[in-house]
């Protein structure tokens, strides 16, 4: 069962398990808010799989709450991956860290798996191995993963999305945009 992220914000405190956040741009913004909120309190790891880690935005978010933004930004341990092979390598390295308990934020996990240069069976195999790593990490640390809905062009890769969905313990989803028929009429139309 997915909870509506517009109504239910991220639940805290996080416990070690896999959280999946599904949605478009607003979810990217919420993930940056989450990174900022966590960084104000503790170290965390950010694995960016879709070039979404806008640290300028994070710096702006933390600024009203700290007199030492440099130290807070120093709490964020970040690496970016640009191919699904790199995503797997990055997750294997993270899983190999003994007993790491810092929250692990994974941005836009599916992005690189939609690369059409990577054949679907290869992408599925790499996704399986990546999910195994995520499960290992989630034994000791909360893992929050964001993903965007599959674009139409990648609809034949729905199995990747389903596998990720299946692997998550808790799921939050951005609500679908209301269609014209469901919009509240304007008072002064």
């Amino acid at each position: 069962m997915e909870e509506n992220i517009a109504v239910t914000p991220f639940k805290e405190p996080f416990i070690p398990k896999i959280y999946l956040v599904l949605g478009r741009q607003t979810v990217s913004d919420k993930m940056l808010q989450l990174i900022a909120a966590l960084a104000l309190r503790q170290p965390l790891t950010v694995l960016d799989c879709g070039n979404r880690s806008n640290m300028y935005a994070v710096a702006k978010l933390i600024r009203p709450y700290t007199s030492d933004p440099v130290a807070v930004l120093g709490h964020i341990r970040l690496s970016r991956a640009f191919t699904c092979i790199q995503v797997l390598t990055m997750l294997e390295a993270a899983a190999a860290r003994p007993q790491a308990s810092d929250p692990c934020i994974i941005l836009d996990l599916l992005s690189t798996f939609l690369d059409e240069d990577v054949k679907l069976p290869d992408a599925e195999r790499l996704m399986d191995r990546s999910l195994a790593c995520l499960r290992a990490i989630s034994q000791t640390a909360p893992v929050v993963i964001s993903a965007r809905p599959l674009p139409l062009i990648a609809r034949e890769r729905a199995s990747l999305y389903e596998a990720l969905h299946e692997a998550a313990d808790t799921r939050w989803a951005e609500p679908e945009a209301l269609t014209a028929g469901h919009l509240q009429p304007a008072l002064f139309a």
């Binding site: 960084a39 880690s53 640290m55 300028y56 994070v58 710096a59 440099v70 807070v72 930004l73 120093g74 709490h75 964020i76 341990r77 970040l78 690496s79 970016r80 991956a81 191919t83 092979i85 790199q86 390598t89 990055m90 390295a93």
Partner: peptide
């Protein structure tokens, strides 16, 4: 054949400074 090397870990500040 396939590059596996990933970016070395950076802090948020280092990313702002380098990217």
């Amino acid at each position: 054949y396939q590059k596996r090397q990933v970016e070395q870990f950076k802090t948020g500040l280092q990313l702002i400074q380098s990217d």
